[in-house]
Design a binder for these strands. Structure first.
Lengths: 255, 255
DNA sequence: CGCTATATTGAGCTACATCAAGCGAAGTGG
DNA sequence: CCACTTCGCTTGATGTAGCTCAATATAGCG
């Protein structure tokens, strides 16, 4: 692998800014500058509902969401599903954050293009590359942070708070206030993300709509007239997207 | 810092096997071989209920549980508490897995001795040390794995399943079957770990006791006559402790 | 314009929370 | 050494949030 140590992984630290991989057919990508041989890259196209299985084969297999929205989800033996996180365009997912036991998947919430990069063959070099290590560490760290917030929400917020939190999370991804937010997922998916069932989600959304906190244009499009009002109803701050990036980019969690 | 690159961090990979730091007054520790100057080390003694605040000052401040049991917990504005994980002797906690916003703490579930090691001054060297990076990565990875399991549990198990899962988790820490397990925490703490309230926990424990799945010697001591029977009642496998270590020690998530 | 998948809404039930009383073990002070 | 307090656990009675099941309604797509 031809791999220019100076800059190659700089874009890594901004996982969310990664767009499309040149190998994958598009302009730029975390792995673009590494010029990994074609053999290490595969593209997957997933129709909504399809999924890739996560196997525990080391943290050097990465998936990058190129197009659409995906979710990392686990399934219990009896079919219960829990969505662990929602992933947007640019997200980098380490293939084996999976547990040994539980079945874990990257699932397409909408039609998706996923670029798979397997760097296992270069494990030895990468391990001694501080930039690469820092970047993957950061990836893991951000994921843990999100997971922690999500966990606390499931443990201690009631259903109305969960749905409000979810809507606020979605709205927070759009910098411009009052703009139209599009939900990338069904009521069922939202329920599986929030630990509720889809009927309840629907019911609660109606209640929230009637309260005026949120205005729905369609079942999947809404605006938030007053975000502060939403936050005032929640006992936690709603995490701003890229917050981790912005703050850690400077000092960094692993300098 | 005098720091022998060959072996120094070998013990790191087995976070759970770390016992006591020589600087801290005891035999062996992840940082023992690094011989960090005294100035970077502080000991804390915490009475049950006391806690250390996590601040977001980089991931190079570590806490090691030397004695007793602790918990990482978050608090909401209105006082609601969620225990994120229970930490036993030997656990290494990275000070700033905390979020920007939420208040997060390392709390003593029983009286505790905590050794604090601040490696921030050596950030530059450590960053280029593959062993150190691998070890901290592993730390983060294990934590994410636990967090994920916990999250799925909170999202999709009912209260009885949660309590059973908790008991099985505790029992799984003791290799020898049928031995006496001691709960290191109050009903309130268990509730805050499981997203329930303490009355419910107590009630459910009674129900489980009556079912014979678990035998209580005292409110905090029990045995599990048949672990398989407990697992059969759960839709998920109970994570074996050190599983991550054992399996990743060989192949490793980050070789 | 029909058809299918998804969303909404209601009625009824259950699991869990809340509130409140009682109990037992450990600690404290006279 | 024993009364008294305190703290944590247990348990019951009662309310309610959220689930289940079922009946429409609506959206999106051919």
């Amino acid at each position: 692998m031809n791999y220019d140590s100076g800059r190659k992984l700089h874009s890594w630290t901004g996982a969310n800014s990664i767009s499309l991989c040149s190998e994958c057919g598009s302009s730029e990508c975390a792995f673009g500058k590494m010029e990994p041989p074609r053999s290490s890259i595969h593209r997957h196209h997933l129709e909504r509902g399809q999924s890739l299985e996560c196997h525990d084969s080391g943290c050097l297999r990465f998936w990058i969401v190129e197009l659409g929205n995906a979710a990392i989800s686990t399934f219990f033996r009896d079919g219960r599903r829990q969505i662990l996180s929602v992933e947007y365009v640019g997200a980098v997912v380490c293939g084996s954050m999976a547990m040994e036991e539980s079945e874990q998947r990257l699932e397409a919430l909408t039609d998706c293009d996923i670029c798979e990069v397997d760097l296992t063959p270069w494990a030895h070099e990468l391990r001694r590359d501080p930039d690469f290590m820092t970047a993957t560490f950061q990836l893991m760290h951000d994921r843990l942070e999100k997971s922690t917030t999500h966990l606390a929400m499931l443990g201690r917020l009631d259903s109305q708070e969960r749905v409000l939190f979810f809507l606020a999370e979605m709205a927070a991804r759009h910098s411009d206030k009052g703009s139209i937010v599009t939900l990338p997922m069904s009521r069922e998916d939202i329920a599986d993300y929030l630990g509720l069932n889809s009927d309840s989600v629907s019911r609660i959304l109606s209640r929230i709509r009637k309260s005026g906190l949120v205005r729905f244009l369609s079942p999947t499009e809404f605006t938030v007239p007053d975000i502060a009002a939403v936050e005032r109803r929640l006992p936690v701050a709603v995490p701003k997207p890229h917050a981790a990036q912005t703050s850690h980019g400077v000092g960094g969690h692993m300098p």
